[in-house]
Design a protein around this nucleic acid. Structure first.
Lengths: 156, 156
DNA sequence: TATTGTTATACTCTATAACTATA
DNA sequence: TATAGTTATAGAGTATAACAATA
């Protein structure tokens, strides 16, 4: 039987939502054995690469609202994967560092996610994956530009 | 300043999530003047193309759980965009049809979303968009395959 | 005054169990 | 017994306002 959502599939935005929805489900399952959720994994990754980063910088990087980052950081801290240190020069801030356990967990989880990435893009050449990544990046920039200003589209 | 999430951006799954998140925000804003949400628009589209479709078929088509479709259908019915008729042969079922108002609203919304699609893929050639759509479809199939069975990836 | 991190809160989206009415 | 639609509910993910501590 032919697809009943054929017209919708003419829209790239619909295809993105459908594909991403399934992909995030796979990612969630892949991270579950590590006790990580997508956001805790992403935070761990950025903190590993940038020791001493502040929560507000992390929030900006991951496009997460500051209040929503609180529980992510708290989760990682409770699991002993992360440490917070008050910054002496400005005691409003906390600098974030991963623990040894955090670094190990991150490396294992990242290795698993790279495999997931391979699995999900199986059937595409490396050039096609590169083209896909470029296209996604361009769309992300276009979309961010649309939401930033008072876009005409939302005014009928 | 360089990206702080450079490592994460090596993962296509991360790029998909970031791009799709922004895209869905733009789509939401674009549908708002029509009083539609993403799901009500999608439902309207499928019902327009397939008059008489049943709710369970619609749920399968859009990959929405049956309970979650109830409010979507109710919303469209309350707005007078949709009608439900009990099927005489099997009175458990309702066949769905759009009203004239529903057809008009759908056409206008779809026209707007096609423009949104163009805006978001601006900078890509039509060949590149076609390649993107194919890649997204392949990934969707790969991901659906992973979630269906007891995937080995979730076992460390 | 402005900013960092926090709390409280609410809204959307999604997922599951259990019910009803039909078959 | 099985299925279509429904209800109730709970869990994520995300968004805003307001607060305390600090600058």
């Amino acid at each position: 039987m032919a697809r009943l959502d054929g017209t919708l599939r003419e829209l790239t935005v619909y295809r993105m939502r459908r594909a991403t929805s399934d992909v995030l489900s796979v990612v969630k399952d892949a991270l579950e054995p590590f006790g990580l959720r997508r956001q805790t994994f992403s935070a761990l990754s950025v903190i590993c690469d940038h020791p001493g980063i502040r929560q507000s910088q992390l929030a900006d990087t991951l496009a997460i609202e500051r209040p929503n980052l609180v529980q992510v950081i708290g989760d990682l801290e409770n699991r002993g994967l992360l440490m917070r240190e008050q910054v002496p020069e400005d005691r409003r801030m906390y600098s974030l560092h991963v623990t040894n356990a955090g670094a190990i967990t991150y490396r294992q989880a990242m290795r698993t996610l790279r495999k997931v990435d391979k699995t999900l893009t199986a059937g595409l050449t490396s050039d096609e994956v590169a083209a896909l990544n470029r296209a996604l990046h361009l769309i992300e920039l276009n979309a961010a530009g649309e939401t930033a200003d008072g876009s005409q589209l939302s005014r009928s």
